[in-house]
């Protein structure tokens, strides 16, 4: 296996515009979509880990490039601008209406990525709105390259990537030849804030847009329901006498013990 330090890594980072985790989510009257009014949108937090890692790879070698791609509505341009402000070199907006089916999003991304030169595709392990966890693996499959998911540590040396993955109760380390896809987990790094200089410089960076027609979704959204209201708190008693009953409830009803 050939390993050379400081190789040029051309990274492509797939990002998604999602509602802020602090936003109050309401379901629209049709019961099929979120009511976007008054909701602030941000870059999917897991995608921030992916982007940060790509930026660090570039900074470590002093070479390479970072391209941010998103499939989304017109407004997703703002999310790309945030990526440029953080340090990405180029942004690509594939304009399309939102799709619930990860397959059609992965297809649009893979078509765009296949037409570019790249070494590494980085994604968040999931988007915090749809929670499908489909796109990274599907993109890798379509590109015919390996995929490491839930990655908390990444090293790239020569043409080889070594990824530490989070698995139940421990970690797993995998290695693969580039090009490949990495899906970032929380803990991979601490994403930077964009600097004001970065925000101003973002204006002068290339941001291309094109309309894409998504293929026919095979997965159809038929309904959304809000989480159940929290049950009223229950006071089981006072003092040490209440402890056995509390333990019983925690064990048998809440099932947390």
């Amino acid at each position: 296996m050939r390993r050379t330090e400081g190789m040029i890594v051309r990274s492509i980072v797939c990002i998604k515009r999602v509602p802020d985790s602090e936003a109050r989510i309401r379901i629209s009257a049709d019961g099929m979509s979120l009511d976007p009014s008054g909701v602030k949108f941000v870059m999917n937090p897991y995608d921030e880990f992916a982007l940060e890692e790509a930026l660090r790879l570039k900074e470590a070698s002093g070479q390479g490039s970072v391209t941010a791609i998103t499939v989304g509505p017109e407004e997703a341009r703002e999310t790309l601008r945030s990526a440029l402000a953080m340090g990405a070199d180029e942004g690509v907006l594939l304009r399309a209406e939102a799709a619930a089916d990860g397959l059609v999003v992965a297809r649009a991304l893979a078509d765009e990525i296949a037409a570019r030169e790249y070494d590494l595709v980085l994604c968040g392990k999931q988007a915090i709105d749809g929670d499908n966890m489909q796109v990274p693996a599907m993109v890798a499959q379509m590109l015919g390259v390996p995929c490491a998911t839930v990655v908390v540590e990444l090293r790239v040396e020569g043409g080889v990537a070594k990824a530490k993955r989070e698995i139940e109760g421990g970690h797993e380390v995998v290695e693969f030849d580039l090009p490949g896809v990495v899906a970032a987990q929380k803990g991979l790094n601490e994403p930077r804030y964009p600097s004001l200089k970065g925000i101003m410089a973002a204006k002068r960076k290339p941001l291309s847009e094109k309309d894409v027609t998504l293929s026919e979704p095979k997965l159809e959204l038929v309904g959304l329901t809000p989480p159940p209201a929290r049950p009223e708190p229950q006071i089981v008693g006072e003092g040490p006498d209440a402890v056995p009953e509390l333990v019983r409830l925690l064990r048998e009803e809440a099932k947390v013990l």
Binding site: E78, R81, S82, A85, Y193, I199, M200, A202, K203
Partner: peptide, 25 residues
């Protein structure tokens, strides 16, 4: 924007800067 800025129309750049400040705060 949660808070109004005297009805000011923010440029993209101002909005980004303001969001950064808000997030940082």
């Amino acid at each position: 924007m949660r808070r109004s800025h005297a009805g000011a129309r923010l440029t993209d750049e101002q909005r980004e800067i303001l969001l950064l400040a808000r997030r940082f705060a």
